[in-house]
Amino acid sequence: MNRSFYRFALSFRGGVKGDMKAVFAEKMYNDHSFPREEKKFDPLSRYIEEKADFEMSTAIFDELYKQYEERFL
């Protein structure tokens, strides 16, 4: 399947309160400048580090990206 990271991460939206993956997904969804079609780690990581909301943790991103990579890449 040719799915972007954004589409994958949205599946965590609406999770249990306090679940950091759900928080990440919600913040990502509300960030209208998030690179929604991107699939590659480096551009996404750079965006998270430089432009994303502080609640979009790089550690959570790394965890989500690893799951994304195992499933779709």
Score class of each variant (00 low, 15 high):
1 M>D: 15
2 N>D: 15
3 R>S: 13
3 R>D: 14
7 R>Y: 01
7 R>P: 00
7 R>G: 01
8 F>R: 04
10 L>A: 02
10 L>V: 01
12 F>G: 01
12 F>N: 03
12 F>P: 00
13 R>I: 02
14 G>Q: 04
14 G>C: 02
15 G>A: 07
16 V>K: 10
19 D>M: 08
21 K>I: 08
22 A>D: 07
22 A>W: 03
22 A>Q: 03
24 F>R: 00
25 A>S: 12
25 A>P: 06
25 A>M: 02
26 E>Q: 06
27 K>D: 00
30 N>E: 10
33 S>C: 08
33 S>K: 10
34 F>R: 01
34 F>S: 07
36 R>Q: 12
38 E>R: 07
39 K>E: 10
42 D>Q: 14
42 D>L: 13
43 P>W: 08
47 Y>A: 01
47 Y>M: 03
49 E>Y: 15
51 K>R: 13
52 A>R: 02
53 D>E: 11
54 F>L: 13
54 F>V: 10
55 E>M: 14
57 S>Y: 04
57 S>K: 10
59 A>I: 15
59 A>R: 13
60 I>C: 11
60 I>E: 02
61 F>Y: 08
61 F>R: 05
64 L>A: 05
66 K>R: 13
66 K>I: 08
68 Y>D: 06
69 E>N: 11
71 R>C: 03
73 L>R: 13
